Amino acid sequence: MITHFQYKALFKKANLPGWRISFYFRGAHYDGIYHKNGQIEWGSVPPPSENETDIQSQIHELMLFHVYD
């Protein structure tokens, strides 16, 4: 389960989509960029491949709730 999820617009004072995201998963910190098409560009440390699909699904739900409501 994702905890401490945060997001912030990539561009200040611009109506361009894209968000910097960060969160914890099983005690490890992850970050990346969430693009308007739903693609996630992971930061320096990607999540474990066996959990990546589940993590992406949780992030999509959070972004739909917070950004696209």
Rank of each mutant, 00 (worst) to 15 (best):
F23N: 04
I40E: 03
H29E: 13
G38M: 04
N51L: 05
I55M: 11
Y30H: 06
G27P: 05
P48Y: 13
N37F: 08
E50W: 05
I59D: 10
L62N: 05
V67W: 12
I59G: 03
H60V: 06
N51R: 11
K13L: 12
N51D: 14
Q6F: 09
K13S: 04
E61L: 15
Q39F: 12
G27Q: 06
W42S: 01
Y24I: 02
Q56A: 13
S22C: 11
P46A: 13
H35A: 09
G32D: 02
L16Y: 11
D54A: 15
G43F: 10
I59T: 03
L62Y: 03
D31A: 12
G18E: 10
G43H: 07
G32I: 00
L16I: 11
Y34P: 01
A9I: 00
Q39C: 06
S22W: 04
E52M: 15
I55W: 08
V67G: 05
K12D: 04
P48L: 14
K12P: 01
P48G: 07
I55N: 08
G27F: 05
I40L: 12
G38D: 05
E50F: 09
F23T: 06
Q39W: 12
I59K: 03
G43T: 01
S49E: 15
K36H: 14
I2R: 02
L10R: 13
Q56K: 15
W42C: 03
L10H: 04
M63W: 08
F11H: 14
I21A: 06
E41G: 02
T53Q: 14
K13W: 10
